[in-house]
Amino acid sequence: MTDGTPLTDARPRALRLLPTGRSRRARYTAILFVLPAFTAYAVFVLAPLIMSLYYSTLRWDGIGKARFTGLANYVTVLTDPDLLSIIGNAFELVLYFTVIPVLLGLAVASAIRGHMAGTFGTLTRTVLFLPQVIPLVAAGIAWSWMFASTGLVNQMLTAVGLADWTRGWLGDFDFALPAVGIIGAWVLLGLCTMLLVTGITKIDPSLYEAARLDGARPWHEFRYVTLPGLRQEIGVCVTVTVISALASFDIVYIATGGGPGITTMVPGLEIYRLAFAHRQVGLASALAIVLMVLVLIAITPVQWYAREKK
């Protein structure tokens, strides 16, 4: 193509797609730029992921001989009552991790509806972001102490005359999971609030004025201006919080270890337990794959909702 022979239109199309020397060189350059990142990604994510798929078809204790069992592990994950209730726990955590921060965030954002300027603004931002900065493990320890029998929660209940309600929250069969949920909500609350507060400042204020001239009540303003305007931010909050609920590990590991019984056991921790304590590598891997798929299934509609705006 570069020899300069006059070329006619009759030349087959496919021939034109052959790269010239320059575009071939350009492609090599592109490959060189992407290669380091791709190598790291391939070796430490793609390869393990493929191995996970492979392990999930095995019955293997991690040491001895592995036996191929096909989809048996998946059948176990999806039928074993314990494992199902563990997966259920993860979805119950979504209620706390996602719903509380998003609703509270929306309330604060629509109350402020403007920039948080000045010292008060900086102070709020700093304080609300603290839980994002500390390790989740530290949040777990802090709240283990809050929920302990002599902890602040019980102390406050007693102070308002509800001494009967006091208990060791994280050791309680009924209340341990909600308590873990509260920890997650506490961690994610600041982030969601700040995202929504920032998002609401991007809504054109004249929209509110127009709505008010059209006779909108505060509820209408919220429903027809704020909510649609925050669609993307809400999408982000829900995505982030749902992932951290479904894939939670650190908080549960520290606060309850999955107990009492399996009332607070979540898939992430169960994978760890199965693979490294019970030496059921195949089952752990099947649960890992199921967890990955569940996260994808849970997020896809949220992404759709958030994108629709464009």
């Binding site: 996970s52 992932i243 590990f249 891997s285 890992a288």
Partner: peptide, 15 residues
């Protein structure tokens, strides 16, 4: 992007 680290932790250990 959405891959939970737990999904690959077991094979990572052996790797």
């Amino acid at each position: 992007l959405t891959l939970p680290f737990e999904a690959v932790i077991t094979p990572l250990y052996y790797e």
